[in-house]
Nucleic acid binder design. Sequence first.
DNA 1: TTATAAGGTCACCACTTGGTGACTTTTAAT
DNA 2: ATTAAAAGTCACCAAGTGGTGACCTTATAA
Lengths: 214, 214
Amino acid sequence: MEPNTITSRGRDKNKSKQQFLDAVGTILRTKGYTALKVNNIAATAGLDKKLIYKYFGSTEQLIDEYIHSQDFWSNVTGDLVPKEVTDGGKDFLKRMLLEQFEFVSQNKALQKVLLWSISEERKSLKKLIDDQEANGEVLLKGISDPHFGDKASDHRAVLAILVAGLYYLNLFTEVNGSHFCGIDLKTEEGRSKIRQATSFLVEQTYSSIQEKKQ
Amino acid sequence: MEPNTITSRGRDKNKSKQQFLDAVGTILRTKGYTALKVNNIAATAGLDKKLIYKYFGSTEQLIDEYIHSQDFWSNVTGDLVPKEVTDGGKDFLKRMLLEQFEFVSQNKALQKVLLWSISEERKSLKKLIDDQEANGEVLLKGISDPHFGDKASDHRAVLAILVAGLYYLNLFTEVNGSHFCGIDLKTEEGRSKIRQATSFLVEQTYSSIQEKKQ
DNA sequence: TTATAAGGTCACCACTTGGTGACTTTTAAT
DNA sequence: ATTAAAAGTCACCAAGTGGTGACCTTATAA
């Protein structure tokens, strides 16, 4: 029998594979990566676990295939990159940081993946992180580095702290935490303060590091 | 028989209890909180798991007792608080941030606890976080808030991003990651850049938010 | 219609998990 | 020495884990 590609049957390998991949996503979002067990995944997919071994080889490979299949940073990176940069990328970076802050807070899967990537050594996660880093590298090299000249790495260090800080604050808010340095991150008011501080820090960095360069 | 308090025997309840608590610490540091299983803890302690139930009631209670017994932020918070503040706490905050950055990077247990606290809902972790937050509150209220006046919460938001960012960068470095925004966090050079950026941001914040206030 | 290959189910295995009852060993007061 | 209480060991259980062989089911090419 030839491999079924298009015909819609009740028994569809591709559909079943997708059900497993979806199940991985569902479990990851709701229970986190520690709940990604064969029995759990099979039950969530509503199919027999045997099929996981048949189609993916192992649970690990299924999970890796899930990771590779997702574009976790879609909204952040796929963002509008300005055609022309007149302010050294200040406005672009500001928007990027604020959008990332919002995007992460609304994207449970990305949150769990970020957490996962700092919790467990894993090739496919390292690749994910490295790829995202490479994406950022292109933007920085093309947009802000030229502006900061020999102070480029100083600006990058600042940016690293900002990106990392916004990541952590979002993760922190999800469990056990609400107030951080007295800011209530669960309220719109608190999050607004964080956004303002982000804008402020980008602004300051652009005016001051630029200053030093001249 | 009276409870043994001081006499040193081979069979010493307190010593055994401590062995279990130490085992929890060892496992946490080396394998992370997900490896904190009864059998694992008992094996590490070199004692029978039955004793865990006898002495602590359950594994959960043993773990909670470990968490409560530790002063994870000892070096950071127990730090020298200035008797007299003449610069609005700028120097104090700068030193605090830099010391925290170093301390976390060298303290595996604290790293794992930070990770744990943003991964799993848990009363004792929430208490830990809340207590640390309360410690910080005292310092901020006493040192920097008066300086920033009605802009105090703006300064706090900046500080939140910095503290969170330094946390995340340290956690990021431990697994899967090395470069972040192009900064190699595993090298002294990279970490130095982060320290400089931290100083820079505190400096900027003090000069600029102060400016606005006047 | 029938053969066949792939989709899918189920029972079962070995092993690990948390947890407990029955037991032995040690200690120290009598 | 006797004895009671606590320290500690061991075998065992039920439930859950990852993983597999034997089987049934369905679609379609011949």
